[in-house]
């Protein structure tokens, strides 16, 4: 088989999936505030000897129900091009506030619906975030630990699934303006999974998981 062609094909899909790790809310937005967000990003891989990332997109929105509870939903547009309705919905809430920093929690689900064969998949997930403002009181750095949970026990041909939890570490920064918000995030996806002897050559330390780079632009209403 030709490796390059297969790799291109898989990369497209993998980026679609990993772009499901789009940039989420780190802090709840204000009560009654609305946010529309466009994301672009994916894991870094070696392709034809060079490191690349194939940017795929998602669009979404968020709404602040209270000052401490927001809901965010995203639609992964590239997945839709392949006939898979792929969304994620997450709640965000603060769990501990300090003067310039705090902890927050995201919890929610990814869901996939294969439009052609009508197959549904669901993955619960949660993130624990720590953020810290610095001299500019609006902008902040953050780090997150995320876990996506595989509910199935077996994969193709009843092979047992050995890893039920897919962890991700993220480091990012948000720039907040009056009407806009811009975010950039570096993720270390599934950092415990061996990434050798598969079609895709991920870029990651110790041949584990994959590093990914993500960008987001949001407009407030």
């Amino acid at each position: 088989m030709n490796k390059i062609v297969i790799k291109v094909s898989l990369l497209v899909f993998i980026f679609v999936l990993y772009s499901c790790s789009s940039i989420r809310l780190i802090k709840p937005i204000k009560k009654g505030e609305k946010l529309i967000t466009a994301d672009i990003g994916g894991p870094l891989v070696i392709f034809s000897g060079a490191p690349i990332f194939l940017p795929l997109t998602s669009i979404g929105g968020a709404y602040g129900f209270t000052d401490n509870f927001s809901l965010q939903t995203s639609l992964h547009t590239t997945s839709l091009l392949f006939g898979t309705f792929h969304m994620e919905s997450f709640a965000n809430t603060n769990i501990k506030n300090f003067d310039r920093s705090g902890f927050s929690l995201n919890y929610g689900v990814y869901y996939f619906w294969g439009l052609r064969e009508n197959i549904f998949s669901l993955y619960p997930a949660f993130d624990i975030n720590y953020y810290r403002h610095y001299s500019n009181k609006n902008n902040y750095f953050y780090t997150s630990f995320s876990s996506l949970i595989e509910l199935r026990n077996t994969k193709a041909f009843n092979e047992p699934i050995k890893q039920q939890i897919i962890p991700t570490l993220s480091f990012g920064h948000r720039w907040l303006k009056e009407k806009y918000e811009f975010g950039v995030e570096l993720k270390y996806l599934n950092f415990i999974k061996d990434n050798t002897n598969i079609v895709v050559e991920y870029i990651a330390p110790f041949n584990k998981g994959s590093l990914g780079l993500y960008f987001s632009l949001s407009k407030k209403f």
Binding site: I14, L17, G114, E117, I119, S121, I161, N190
Partner: peptide, 11 residues
């Protein structure tokens, strides 16, 4: 490649 038990028919 993905690490999830997703159906191939998705793509």
């Amino acid at each position: 490649a993905v690490g999830l038990a997703l159906p191939g028919s998705y793509v």
